[in-house]
Amino acid sequence: MEENKKYTAQDYKSDQYVRWCPGCGDHAILNALQKAMAEVGIPPYKTAVISGIGCSSRLPYYMGTYGFHTIHGRAGAIATGVKVANPELAVWQVSGDGDGLAIGGNHFIHEVRRNIDINILLLNNKIYGLTKGQYSPTTDRGAVTKSSPYGTVEDPFIPAELVFGARGTFFARSLDVDTATSVEVLAAAARHKGASVVEILQNCVIFNNNIHSYITDKEVRAERTIHLHHGEKMLFGKEMNRGLVLDGHLLKAITIGEDGYTIDDVLVHDATTQNFVMHQMLAMMDGHELPLAIGVIRNVEAPTYDGEVTRQVEEVRQKKNYPTLRDVILSGDTWEVK
């Protein structure tokens, strides 16, 4: 197939019937992913989608690409092997908050730290769905679930904090109900060289229904979210008349024209600055005091693990110039028996 063939979302669909619950946020995310892949245009046969275990981890079965539905928590480690072994492939990982941040938390921080070129979808519904409703590492403190009948007594992870703590180079966020933004950030993740983490707030209609509705409901979404674009003013609101400014060392949401604030006071988003302090402040906004940030929050360049492995192998090969193993062995201590 010629490289410049135009692909459509249809080319990334498999023949399998999609078995998520009606109303599950995963349906929209699947569609967004297929659209993003078509937009980026890497052929399905050069794409591998790797998942762990959980509702969201069923996703590879619905893709017309190469796919591997693996074991609980290990998608990141398996995807790492796929990418290092075959760097020509576009490698995607799909994990939920339990798969990616509880049982697979170790692999998650290490793949981010290594900056291996994998696109990681983290579908965050703050609950275990496939095991029918236990709290996860992103469940809010005090939440009542089947395994926390009196409320949880632990604080959740904020996925972005883990990413920045592990020196991540790419972090973006979207909402399951906002397909346009999901397509935008997934395509950006695909184009970024290195570990790209995309957190998508996803609704579990059965076990945690409306967990994100404070933010995602149509009537309030414009006021409670801000869509960040690199190089543009941080504006939000229905009228786009609200903005983020620095107040001392902290962010503050203002209305232009009120309290003496003008458009010139509003911050410009720089996703590409190496320093992650502003990215972290933006990612920590939760829709209450400050709007929840969606879009690409951080997108910086750094050497990738797979790229460095390949480069080092080539460099050492050229320097040593051993055609085969036998030549390596013969270069050591040997003796002849005649």
């Binding site: 591998a48 790797i50 591997f68 693996t70 074991i71 290990r74 480690a77 398996i78 995807a79 790492t80 092997g81 796929v82 990418k83 290092v84 072994a85 075959n86 492939l89 170790n106 692999h107 290490h110 492995v309 080092q312 192998v313 050492v316 090969r317 320097k319 040593k320 051993y322 085969t324 193993l325 390596v328």
Partner: peptide, 27 residues
């Protein structure tokens, strides 16, 4: 033995050692 093209990766734990190898086999 990167000098003969081997990719040997020290992973974050034993599980990742095996899992990354499974990924490499798949690939």
């Amino acid at each position: 033995r990167k000098d003969v093209g081997v990719k040997a990766c020290q992973m974050e734990d034993e599980i990742a050692g095996a899992c990354s190898a499974i990924g490499a086999a798949f690939a």
